[in-house]
Design a protein around this nucleic acid. Structure first.
Length: 406
DNA sequence: TCTGGGGTCCTAGGACCC
DNA sequence: TCTGGGGTCCTAGGACCC
């Protein structure tokens, strides 16, 4: 049976939530940014987009584009709450839902749309319900598969509703730039352009052998995408995570070993505590370092056993750091664990105490090593302002819901 | 005035083995 | 003129997404 997939994508989600929460921000150009010293625009209102304010701009660039731009430090709790409420709305229309990101969801409405007067009526009702409840516009695309549903919503923003029927897919794709497709980014767009392929129509007609020789296993996939075919189905159950990590751009570039270690300790604690909270442990620890010139690299270390203990993660990180000859100051540090497995049993009070003990011994270890220059608990805990803006890819449930302690 | 943070998947290339 | 050549595992890094 022909599937009917609906993609619901909130328009300027974080900015819309902030405008809803604070009437003074409505109708104005606003940019949601992080709270750290060196932050960028995460989302901007449509009023700000009109001035050319773009995601990823630093504050200075954004201000230059729009001098009266209002900056708002993001608040993850508002967004995760709203996301959870949105999911409840979706569930009224079908049980087959994939909450893909904090502002985007896929709904399989194949067997339920008739209960609501058809696909478009169902979509209009969802849009209305979200608008009434949260004053947020969303754009909905409906199509026979996820790829085209997402495309339909992307090209209909903002506040759009588009149903692309199976027999309309070819016409829609014929002159559609390949970069509009989900999974084709700047690099692939450029490679395709050099092959003389710029539209989906052309991509779909390119011999598979040619694409395979240029893109390997992705080649087959690319041809299918050009033809509007997509095998990916809605993932109703959230997949187990493959890695858990945190990274941070430091307030200032640093070279002091003691400072680097203090940040690594806190990152290790953030990773470990999240892993423990969700019952995961990993046997691979990765350290990521970025220099001021943005050169970024990662080194990993395999442990004999899986762990989620702050101190063990930290110690592995230090071993990795010891294996690197730093060529410059450090701009960003990241710690993550992978090769994950579930650990049974909830975190007990005993374990929580053990965790604190481990953390303190790690601080002790630094002090032992650098005797003269004491790292105190206060200097550790006050050293880092924890990020308050959650990444749009975070999810309202499961391990990716990272409630940062205030 | 400089350029965030959370992920997943794929691949190139080296080590090692037979 | 002429280095063998498969296979697997592992690491680092690229590309992409929100």
């Amino acid at each position: 049976m022909q599937k009917l997939i609906l993609c619901a994508d909130m328009d300027a989600f974080f900015a819309s939530v902030e405008q809803q929460a604070n009437p003074k921000l409505r109708g104005k150009p606003i940019a949601v940014i992080g709270s750290a010293a060196r932050t960028v625009v995460v989302t901007r209102s449509y009023e700000a987009r009109a001035f050319g304010v773009k995601t990823g701009m630093n504050v200075y660039e954004a201000k230059k584009a729009c001098p009266h731009l209002i900056f708002v430090a993001g608040d993850n709790e508002k967004y995760t709450y709203t996301c959870g409420e949105l999911e409840k709305i979706y569930r009224k229309y079908t049980p087959d839902i994939e909450v893909y990101s904090i502002d985007e969801a896929f709904l399989d409405i194949t067997s339920t749309h008739h209960l609501f007067g058809g696909p478009e009526a169902l979509a209009a009702q969802i849009k209305r319900e979200i608008k009434d409840r949260f004053s947020i516009n969303c754009t909905i695309g409906i199509a026979p598969n996820i790829l085209i549903a997402k495309l339909a919503s992307d090209i209909s923003k903002p506040d759009g509703l588009r149903w692309v029927k199976a027999d309309e897919v070819s016409l829609l794709l014929e002159d559609m730039p390949v970069k509009e497709l989900w999974g084709i980014g700047p690099k692939t767009t450029e490679k395709l352009r050099l092959m003389g392929i710029s539209t989906c129509g052309a991509l779909g007609r390119t011999p598979a052998s040619l694409l395979r020789s240029r893109f390997g296993i992705m080649g087959e996939h690319l041809k299918a995408m050009g033809q509007g075919r997509c095998e990916r189905v809605i993932a109703v159950n959230e997949a187990a995570p493959k890695s858990i990590g945190h990274s941070m751009t430091l307030p200032k570039d640093i070279s002091s070993r003691r400072q680097i270690e203090a940040y690594m300790l806190q990152l290790s604690d953030m990773v470990g505590s999240r892993a423990r909270k969700h019952g995961f442990a990993g046997s691979t620890v990765s350290l990521t370092i970025r220099y001021p010139d943005f050169e970024t690299f990662t080194k990993q270390l395999h442990l004999p056993e899986q762990t989620n203990h702050t101190q063990e993660i930290y110690k592995a990180g230090i071993r990795l750091l010891d294996s690197i000859k730093l060529k410059d100051k450090v701009r960003l540090l990241g710690i993550s664990i992978s090769s994950l497995g579930r650990v049974t049993g909830q975190m007990t009070l005993f374990k929580e105490q053990a965790k604190q003990k481990a953390l303190l011994s790690a601080v002790d270890a630094i002090n032992d090593k650098y005797g003269g220059f004491k790292v105190t608990w206060a200097s550790y805990s006050g050293m880092i302002e924890r990020p308050k803006v959650i990444a749009p890819a975070w999810k309202p449930s499961g391990v990716r819901n990272i409630k940062i302690k205030k």
